[in-house]
């Protein structure tokens, strides 16, 4: 493409480019107002919330498919609910309205019921999901700038690392 640019045309373009660049630089401060930078710790919180939500969905799917595991799985599922509210305390978040967006954990979107997996397979699947989440929480704990957040993520990680003990 640059091959068809004659010298004169290139000079014109360069000049124009400089002008545009200068304009862009000067307007940077005034007009477009870039969105406020995302707090990296907030992103870590969001990711932790997502992990907890998908663990809850995994538990709900197994509970639906293998109801005889209910007594065994509910205590673990409850701990994920605790995790969720520890990362995002429901009261502390000043959301615009209480009516609009439903609380994160209460409406699990359970996909169409798959054929019931064997119990051992279902437990192994949950244990694997717990371990994956534990590793991700652990990494996030290392990255958190806020120390209490690091401690919380470390606790979530340890809790989830221990859940397979109850799933074995």
């Amino acid at each position: 493409m640059s091959a068809d640019l004659g010298p004169s045309r290139r000079r014109v373009l360069t000049a124009a480019g400089a002008a545009v660049l200068a304009g862009a630089l000067s307007s940077c401060t005034s007009e477009p107002t870039p969105p406020p930078p995302i707090d990296p710790d907030d992103a870590l919180r969001d990711a932790a919330v997502e992990r907890e939500q998908s663990l809850l969905q995994a538990y709900d799917a197994v509970l639906l498919a293998v109801p005889e595991l209910t007594a065994r799985l509910l205590p673990l599922r409850d701990q994920h609910l605790e995790h969720l509210s520890a990362v995002r305390p429901p009261v502390a978040t000043p959301l615009p309205s209480a009516s609009a967006s439903p609380p994160v954990a209460s409406v699990p979107e359970v996909p169409a019921v798959p054929p019931a997996p064997p119990v051992a397979e279902a437990l192994a699947g949950l244990a694997a999901a717990e371990r994956t989440a534990a590793s991700a929480h652990a990494l996030a704990a290392l990255r958190a700038a806020d120390r209490p957040l690091a401690g919380l993520l470390a606790s979530l990680s340890a809790s989830e690392a221990s859940h397979p003990v109850a799933l074995s």
């Binding site: 205590p75 673990l76 409850d78 701990q79 605790e82 995790h83 520890a86 534990a134 652990a138 919380l152 470390a154 606790s155 979530l156 990680s157 340890a158 809790s159 690392a161 221990s162 859940h163 003990v165 109850a166």
Partner: peptide, 25 residues
Amino acid sequence: LQETAVRAAQWRLLAGDLQVTLALP
């Protein structure tokens, strides 16, 4: 923290406790 939480859960499992794990070790 992970190691101690896992071992604590293992001990509670051996003890026959109903609640084996902690939400926030």
